[in-house]
Design a protein around this nucleic acid. Sequence first.
DNA 1: GAGATATCTGCTAACGTTTGCAGTCGGAGC
DNA 2: GCTCCGACTGCAAACGTTAGCAGATATCTC
Lengths: 350, 350
Amino acid sequence: MITLKDVARALGVAPSKVWLALADHPHVHERTKARVRAAAAEMGYVGHLPARVMRGGRSALIGLTIPDVRNDFYSTAAQAISEACARDGYQVVLCLTGDAPDRERDQLRGLVAARCAGVIVVGTGRMHRETVALLDQVPHVQLIRRARGLHAPWFGIDDAASTRLAVEHLVALGHRDLGYVGGDLELSTGAERFRGFREAMAAAGLASTARWCEHGSGDEASGRVATHRVLGGARRPTALVLAGSRLTAGALAAIRELEIGVPRELSVVGFNDAGALGWWGSGVTSVGLPVGDIALACASGLLAALRASSPGAPAGETQAGAQVAATFAPYLVERGSTAAPESRKRARAA
Amino acid sequence: MITLKDVARALGVAPSKVWLALADHPHVHERTKARVRAAAAEMGYVGHLPARVMRGGRSALIGLTIPDVRNDFYSTAAQAISEACARDGYQVVLCLTGDAPDRERDQLRGLVAARCAGVIVVGTGRMHRETVALLDQVPHVQLIRRARGLHAPWFGIDDAASTRLAVEHLVALGHRDLGYVGGDLELSTGAERFRGFREAMAAAGLASTARWCEHGSGDEASGRVATHRVLGGARRPTALVLAGSRLTAGALAAIRELEIGVPRELSVVGFNDAGALGWWGSGVTSVGLPVGDIALACASGLLAALRASSPGAPAGETQAGAQVAATFAPYLVERGSTAAPESRKRARAA
DNA sequence: GAGATATCTGCTAACGTTTGCAGTCGGAGC
DNA sequence: GCTCCGACTGCAAACGTTAGCAGATATCTC
């Protein structure tokens, strides 16, 4: 591998001269710079980042810890974050936690060991204490979930509003018996979305039936199982609120397995309006999230913080335009999976 | 940030002793080891990987260059690759190229500068010469696409077979007028899939109508536009073969926009049987790919090569079980989007 | 022509880890 | 008691880059 020294030797000059030339230092003659640049390109010289990092700096890596990239929400976020980081010369290290605190800790150890510049974190429910200590050593921001014990800037959605929108839509259609399939209550997202559901139900003068409310781990399989439980009983709700991206996939699979007609027998509101929900057939009514915007704001927040703490920036003064936190609003996309309940239709017909 | 020296100073011993203790070297007293380990954990010492890399090694990073993570195929692959790499202590750097050779080159420069251990590459169609030169400096393997000028191990599918399966299925149902929407013919995948389509058509004694064959860039938008072109004419095919994951999404959107009844007016075979195609309604018949298996084989191939070239391995001898290349077979998943054409049904009824 | 200044150049040290080698200490054998 | 051996410990160098500082050359002024 070609080093700076090799280039210097080939040109018969000192390494420091080569360095100054490549860094476009004013104390180097233009003629020399051109010669050095040509030689470097010719020899295929590529700077040794680790060596640069060793001289006190931080690497050009930004860690992104997410539970699962196959989840539409996270893959969309990863795309936006990666593009934003690339614009600033950073590369993204993809860290999958599978929502396991152990894996989260291991990944974070790796990131700190690599002296990454910053971390964007989607924390697990029961984060290890060591994980928090590791995060303290690196600039970081939180995406979607607010982790207990972490005080870093947070970028996410108004989670309670997302389920409230779904309930209000269904209540307006005439539904009174609503089921709910959501994620882990240990997570801020799971807890908030369920709070939104319960509060919206109460506001409509309805009781949330415990037997029709399930809280899974958030993945597709748990959504499937939970939906089977909610809909498998003798009496079942006329509408179902889903409060998770992968949960929605699992729930729809379960509904197909149970051969329940949608929206005739059951209205369904999905979560995170990914393309798939609109593609096919009459589409799934769902709560949409501006995922790209959230992720972009999150990345921009971290990048602004990094710029502010870099030596070139005006120290002590807060960077203008650096967003330290943001809450985005979810919205409802009406499609073919919701309709007035049969009872209501019959009443109308009479 | 705590260094090895700091730990040594706190304990009143030499840095090298701390190092040997943490590396579990036999020449250090067990009592000392325990004391050092306790102190290191207490002080929150995390090794400085860049410094380690500087001593001649390579970093614990593996680059993954893909066009787009939002694509089901690539997000599933990224998940499998990331998990496999994590098992070996590597972390994955996510590099998005957007199929632009410039971005690909920039990303690769970053990877080489970071002295990453290896790269898994999904090459763009017209790779820069510099990109090839950069890849020459790093162990790498190719995923899905075979890039011109690259001779590294390749892991992918029998692309021609994927479209052949689709054509054979449709021909067996009685279709004779088939449309095709595929990806860039510059890419090995685009070219091979179209070859498979044409050859299967020829084998069935059918001509592939040029006006019904479109080749887009492979993203959702191009699939939508291409489908509009294929189906927008006065006379249209009775069945459509889709040869790309995102193209399928775009095509289904276009079909909805055109209000064409599936499978009554048009049979559709999708590509890459992602969950979404099975979730909803009667489902989309599609060509399935063992994406996880391909990605896993690819990662394993690279990891085996890295193990073989690491100093600890028996030099000169080929590692047993190291897969240097693999072709996986696609399969057809029959669902509700394909049926016999109306003409055939009428003929039968008569 | 000599000195002063401006422009450019080269030497050297430092970052933190890792490894080889030399040194020290204690115990055991003669 | 002396020597030899083994077990353990500490010193120093190297990786490639970068920055500060001193030195060298050329140009300009008096």
